[in-house]
């Protein structure tokens, strides 16, 4: 006699405990196919860089509107924000920030305090990592940003599937208009001024609403686009919430995971890809993390990509991208503002 929990993938013992972590069958059942020819746009937290890089290395049709189409050493490209995502926006940790970027690109929003300073140099506060030494004048930051926004729109307009990795619920927000920044003021540039900036931890309802808004805005630019949501398995480096960092991580990831599920359940054109589950599964016994128990190991990334490629029936290496030049150890380093927080403490 069967149980109300059949098939086997619904039971912990047979679906997780008895299986090797790389073979969790049925964990990802795709809602729509993605092929090597599908135009894929990537954005999100630093974990999303893995997705971008791996698909690009397999010569999938990953959109990249700002990176030179010349074989250049990857580490150098990444240092200036190239080759990380489909446009040079750097890490986008929250759904709200992504919505704001699109609104700005559409000319409907002007962020507060878009330029930060450090040592007499000027930085784009919404992507402070892309020019590590900053620029000489505020005018240059504005001009570079205007050029970048054109490329963001170009990327969205040519997208079939938008892959977005949710990273955090915590953010630093401008008090005046709610502009969300990818890093706390004072870390990479700018100054922490409590009169201007406030720490904010998004709720599940807010993230869900932001994802809904994101879908609406994306469809406004490119009707019919599909969205694949993932949640970054990378724990928080530090929390501003006042709680223990483990609790803060659990809150953040739980909210993101639940919000992603709600939105994916609501729409046929939104799917959820369980990279978070695969990496954090107890059966992996932490082996998908590096020694710092935070960054995802190469084997973890490989497992995630295998799950993605198997589901889309394209596990064979298709080719080598032009941009894979300079494949050195350094190139494996993700560009992650969070890591800089850690470095600042060392």
């Amino acid at each position: 006699m069967g149980t109300p929990f059949s098939p086997a993938t619904h039971e912990w013992q047979s679906a997780v405990a008895e299986l090797v972590p790389t073979a969790l069958e049925g964990l990802y059942v795709r809602k729509f196919p993605i092929t090597p020819d599908t135009a894929i746009m990537t954005a999100g937290s630093c974990f999303a860089q893995h997705v971008h890089r791996h698909l690009q290395d397999r010569a999938w049709n990953v959109i990249d509107t700002e990176t030179p189409s010349i074989a250049l050493p990857r580490a150098a490209l990444n240092r200036y924000g190239y080759g990380l995502f489909s446009a040079r926006y750097g890490n986008i940790y929250t759904a709200r920030q992504m919505v704001q970027l699109l609104e700005e690109a559409l000319g409907r929003r002007t962020p507060s305090e878009p330029i930060w300073q450090r040592d007499g140099r000027f930085f784009d506060a919404l992507r402070p990592n892309v020019e590590p030494e900053g620029l000489g004048r505020p005018r240059l930051v504005r001009e570079a940003r205007a050029d970048h926004l054109k490329h963001v729109l170009r990327a969205v307009r040519s997208t079939d599937v938008f892959v977005f990795t949710l990273g955090l619920t915590e953010a630093w927000v401008h008090r005046d208009d709610g502009t969300v920044y990818p890093s706390a003021p004072g870390i990479l540039a700018g100054e922490h001024d409590p009169e201007k900036y406030v720490f904010y931890n998004f709720t599940m309802a807010e993230v869900q609403q932001d994802l809904d808004d994101l879908r609406t805005t994306l469809h406004e630019i490119k009707p019919g686009m599909k969205i694949l949501l993932t949640v970054s398995p990378v724990p928080l480096t530090a929390t501003g919430s006042g709680t223990h960092v483990l609790s803060a991580t659990t809150y953040s990831k739980s909210v993101l995971r639940a919000a992603a599920a709600e939105v994916a359940d609501m729409y046929k054109d939104v799917d959820y890809f369980p990279s978070y589950e695969l990496i954090t599964a107890p059966s992996a016994k932490g082996t998908f993390y590096d020694a710092n128990l935070r960054t995802v190991s190469m084997s973890g990334v490989a497992a995630v990509m295998d799950m993605f490629l198997s589901a889309h029936e394209a596990s064979d290496l298709r080719g080598t991208s032009l941009r894979s030049g300079g494949d050195d150890e350094d190139a494996r380093e993700l560009v992650c503002e969070e890591a800089l927080i850690e470095a600042g403490r060392a």
Binding site: E66, L72, A76, L140
Partner: peptide, 18 residues
Amino acid sequence: PLMSEAAMSGLLEALIAQ
């Protein structure tokens, strides 16, 4: 498209260094 002087120099340096 626009590229900063620093990025152009940095990419050329990396290209030659390779």
